[in-house]
Every structure is written in structure tokens, then in C-alpha cells.
Design a protein around this nucleic acid. Sequence first.
DNA 1: GTTTCTTTTGAAAGCGCTTTCATAATATTA
DNA 2: TAATATTATGAAAGCGCTTTCAAAAGAAAC
Lengths: 360, 360
Amino acid sequence: MTGEDNESVVKYLRPPGATLEDVADAAGVSLATASRCLNHPDSVRAEKRQRILDAVERLHYVPHGAARALASKRTRMIGAVLPSLDNALFGGALGPFQKTLAAAGYSVLIASSDYDPDLERTHIRNLLESGVEALLLVGALRDPAIYQLIDAKHIPYVLSWVYEKDQHHAYAGFDNIGAAIHLTDYLMMLGHRRFGVISGIIEDNDRAQLRLQGIRSALNGKSLDLDPDCVFERQFSVEDGREVFRLMMSMSKPPTAIVCGAAPFAYGALFEAAEMGVRVPDAVSVASFDDMWLAPHISPPLTAVRTPRREMGEQAARYLVAKLEGERVALPRALETKLIVRKSTGPAPFANLPGSPPPE
Amino acid sequence: MTGEDNESVVKYLRPPGATLEDVADAAGVSLATASRCLNHPDSVRAEKRQRILDAVERLHYVPHGAARALASKRTRMIGAVLPSLDNALFGGALGPFQKTLAAAGYSVLIASSDYDPDLERTHIRNLLESGVEALLLVGALRDPAIYQLIDAKHIPYVLSWVYEKDQHHAYAGFDNIGAAIHLTDYLMMLGHRRFGVISGIIEDNDRAQLRLQGIRSALNGKSLDLDPDCVFERQFSVEDGREVFRLMMSMSKPPTAIVCGAAPFAYGALFEAAEMGVRVPDAVSVASFDDMWLAPHISPPLTAVRTPRREMGEQAARYLVAKLEGERVALPRALETKLIVRKSTGPAPFANLPGSPPPE
DNA sequence: GTTTCTTTTGAAAGCGCTTTCATAATATTA
DNA sequence: TAATATTATGAAAGCGCTTTCAAAAGAAAC
């Protein structure tokens, strides 16, 4: 009686779900065989395999990930730390990243850093503790100690949204400077000489830094300078785009071309322009990074640099999987951006042609 | 020599990183004490604690999540399966969800189902195998076997974006029917009698089903019917919104009010209206679910039902954490939606007042 | 200085699985 | 049929950690 009682208590306290041992018992095979049956099906005789699979079914057996991970040293989890999750920007890479990985049998552990380096560091640490086998990060700019931390674990990682030719890291990204130069050159070709920039917060954000650097570099190439008064640093938001546009238009010498470091700024600028009655692109041209779904629909349609979000997600996933499967893979190559010219950019108002400097 | 050789080989083959045993040895304490030091710091004398913490630091010790999970039966991971990740809609809940959970020490494993029930099922299974301690899902409509699977694991879960008064599930959502009725009533109050609906694909999507049901119900309340020819089912996209708007406007008796099941449809309709020269709201009113950032900026500003995305994410997270911490928590209450009236809706063209049926 | 009551500690037993390694069963060849 | 080469199987040793339990150490009381 006592024994029975005790036994039932034990049963009650047992964690829910059958273990592989239960399956093995039910199928009348050893634990080892049961394990093999699930991991290397054709290393076990067909007849037993069936018995085991039946038992799995009957007992609703669900493998215990942690136990498996501990024994096999594989978690099949990959971590991703993104600056934010609530907009379509990083989601545009995360979705394809996750999809590609899922197809290869990996899960994704995510975290958002909110553009905060400390938070990012914490998340990376936690992901490492969770046993992720690889990491996806955004940008390259971070405390070297973080890279050491990752390297100490010998796990592969990819930096997205940026690209460098150096061999220090694996990048799944694009050339921000080049893209910014291309965009700026295009605007200069249209005769623009006085530029305004609405940038994301520069600190801790190398994408923003590089884009600004690219703009400056293109300008310098034509012996022009970027007026510091025309560079505004803001949190990404439509409202800030509106506000800065208003500020710029109220300057004694407003820019004739506004380059936005991110789409929301451009939308804000365009909305505000419409409201103020400022004609785009006649009075001022507006162009932006991150061609998003709205760009072709907004009025006027927005000239923007298409950033390869889907491609980054997929490339990063493919690279990491290849690495994890032990393949000898080359570092991913730079992804292409593309300048999509629409109606928000046009010739500079007073057609300052190259060679004929604007009247002072 | 051989011994040494062998030893060095062993060391080389060792997985990267120190184990807690290494830390214990380095600190001159037992494994048990080292473990306690990390989990219940004040159950170990201060002096030893310091020695252990120093060793942790010195050896760059990073806990092994799987081992910890296996021994403690806690993974501190929570799974989320969303229909999609690449837009701001679910991201708007996912971000706050993740943030709230991170603050409580939990990580989030995500997967996107692409609105595919089979894929969702697979992901749920995988998450369960990964050892998630709780789940966030979207909608309530799914194969009962899935709920059985989850229940068999005795883990809590929350269904978001929907809400039912029943006690079968925990919901972190809102009343789709009620919101649809409210919106439809508002439009009827403006005199609208002939409605068009652009809905997401109904199959497997209870949010879409409920919204449509709400619209019908409101109409029926006024003895009106929803003309089947005026209901269009499309994948969520701006383009489809445009296309359907065009179709509706070319009908012999076009609707005077268009209710969109999701924001992209409404944007598309508005863009197309502008392009076609159809005056909104004079000729036709457009309203939508999911008030998103663009709604107040688009022209005309969009009347929309604000869905409590942030609140859902936070509420879901709080509920799950409370459950996991063993607190006795009541099921979450329904979240409020709010009809944000803007300029895209107005009186029906021929001011069909209630009581005076439109001339046939 | 004892005795008694707390607080700290370490030994050891798993957690559920994978994976050697040696053995048993089967297939192949002579 | 015997000898040999394969292939399938099971026993057992962990993976790195948490946690019980009993013993040791320290504090408090006499």
C-alpha cells in the first residue's frame, strides 16, 4: 500500500511527457537504439524502427532539447540582436533570415537592443549563455570585448547592414559610403550644391556615420562642403522628419536637396512639404535611404536607395548554416544597393550648373 | 611525455570555455558552492563568493544554458509564432513582448508561420522541443491537436489579436467583432448604406473572419446586408488595395464606404483614389483596421481602429511571466480598441438618412 | 569551556540524451 | 557447414549543471 502510494506520488511529480527511455521500454529496445532511430534512422533495422516510431507516436514523445543539446553539443539555435523590432526595416531582414534558417532546421533567438550598446551587450551575453551556435548582429561598431566574448566561444557571426573589405568579420551587408556617394553624386549632377541632411543619431550607429561620411566625401569630391548647420541628428520618426524639414525651409539659405538617412525622415519631409505648400522637387529635392513599400506611393514618389534587406537576411542565414555544417565557405560578398529615382528629386531650383558657381 | 602529449590533446579537444567545475577548482571550493554562488549569492559566505566571482571573471566563465536547463528544468525561453515578421504590424507587439520578457530575464524564440497552419504547427512543435516554457500565438483558430500538444507539456500560452470571454484560453487581445461593429455603426451613422470590404484571406485567419462577421452583424442590426459582390479577399498589400478600390469604383453601384481589414488595403485605396481623382471622403469613405504610423499623415488622414499592439505584447509577456513565476493570475482582460476618426470618412454622398431608404 | 542551534559547505545523485565501444546477430564467402 | 566480414544492438560513460542530504563550521547560549 505504502509502496503503491509512493509510486503514484512519484508518477505525479514526474515532469510531463515521456522520455526517450520510456519510448525505448515501450518498444522493447535499448535507449541507445531508440536514440539512433531518431537521429540516424537507417542505422536501425526497419522492423525495430517501426516499433520505436509507433511508441513515439503512442506516448506523444517530444524530445528534450536541453538534454539533447547537452549530449550532442548542438542547440540548433541562432541568435539575432537587432536595434529594433517594431518597424519593417529590420523585420525585412529578420523574416527571410528566420525563414532560411528554419528550412535548414535552425531556430532563431531574437532580442532588440533599442540602439543601446549596453543592452546589446547584455543580450549577446544572454544569447551566448542560451547556447546559440551563431549570431547575427547589425553594424560593426561595438566594444572589442564583445567580439572577444564571441570569439572565445568559437561561434560564427555575421554583421549586417554594413560591409568592409577587411577579413576581420563576416558581413552580410552593403557599402553605406558608396551608396551615399552615389546618391549625393546624383543630386549634384542635378545641379544641387547646398545639401541638407537628416541623419539618425550618429553615436553608436555606424550605418548613420558611414552614410554621412559618404555624403561629405562626395561633396568634397566636387570641392563642396556640408554646412554643419544643415545636418540634423534625430531619432527615426516621421515627426522629426517634418520638424527638421520645417527648420530647414526657414533657414536664410535653405538646402535645395535633402538627404535622409532613413525613410521616416523622408516621409515626414514630404508630408510637411505638402502641408507647407513647398513644391517637391521644384523647390527642394528629397531623397532617402531604405526604399520601403511606401516610397512609390507617396506623393511625390520618393527617390531612395534600395537597401537589400531580404538578401542580407538570406545571405547571413546561408553563410552561418554553411559555417555550422562545417563547409569551407568564403566570406559573403558585398550586396548591391540600387538608387531608385522617382519624382521627389529634380534639377536644382536655380540650375547651378557645374562650373558656374552659384552667385554669392 | 606520452601522458603530457595526451593531456594536451585532450585540452585541445575540449569545448571552448571554462566549466563551472573549472571555476570551482580555481576558487578552491566545491562545484556545489560555485553553483550556489551564482544562483543564490547570499547563501554563500562573502569571502568565498568573492573568490568564486573572481574566478568567473578570470576564466571568462559563461554558464552552459543546456546543462543548466537540464538540471534545473528551466530554460527561461519563451516562444512566439507570428504570421509574419517583415512588417510593422506584428513587430509592434513583438518588440514590447520581447522587451518586457527580457526585463524579467526571459529570451524569445521566434518563428513566422507565413499564415500557413502547417508551418505554424511545425514551428510550435520545434519550439516545444527547444524547451520553451511558454508560447505566444496569434489568433485562436487552429487544429485542436495543437492545443493538446501544448497542454500535454503543461506550459502556459497566450493567444493574441483575438479575445473571447470563454475560459479555454488566455487571450491578450481585443474584441474584433465589437471593433468592427463600432466602426460600421459609425459609418452607418454617417448615412452609409452600401459597404465595400477589403478583407485579408479569410481561411485560417480568425481575425479576418471576426471582423467581417462584425461588419455583417452591424449591418444586420439596421436590417441591411453586405453585398457579396462588395467583399474582396486579398493578400495584404497596398497594390491589392489599389486594385480592389479600382474594381469597386467601376461597379454599377459602387459602395459609399469601404472598410479595410488591414491598413495596407486602406493605403492602397487612398492612393488609388488620389490617382483616379475620386474624392475621399466626398465620393467615398475609407476606413480601416490597424491604425499605423502612416494613418495620420496620409492624405486624407485615415480613419482607423487602433489595435493595441504594444499593450498586447506587454500584457502577454506579463501574464506569461506571472504564470511561470507561479503566481495565481487571473486571465488577462480584453484590451480596448479605439476608433480614431480622421478625414477619410464623412457623410454618405446622398445623405441617406436613417429611416429614409435610398431611392431604388 | 560545553552544549545547542544555525548557517555553510561538499559529495553525490541525477536531469534526458548522444555516442563510443564491445558484443551479438546477420550476411557473405569459401 | 565453417570461417569471415558486416551490420545492428545494448551497456555504460558522460555532457555541465542543480539540488538534496548529511556533515562541518560557526554563532549563540549556558
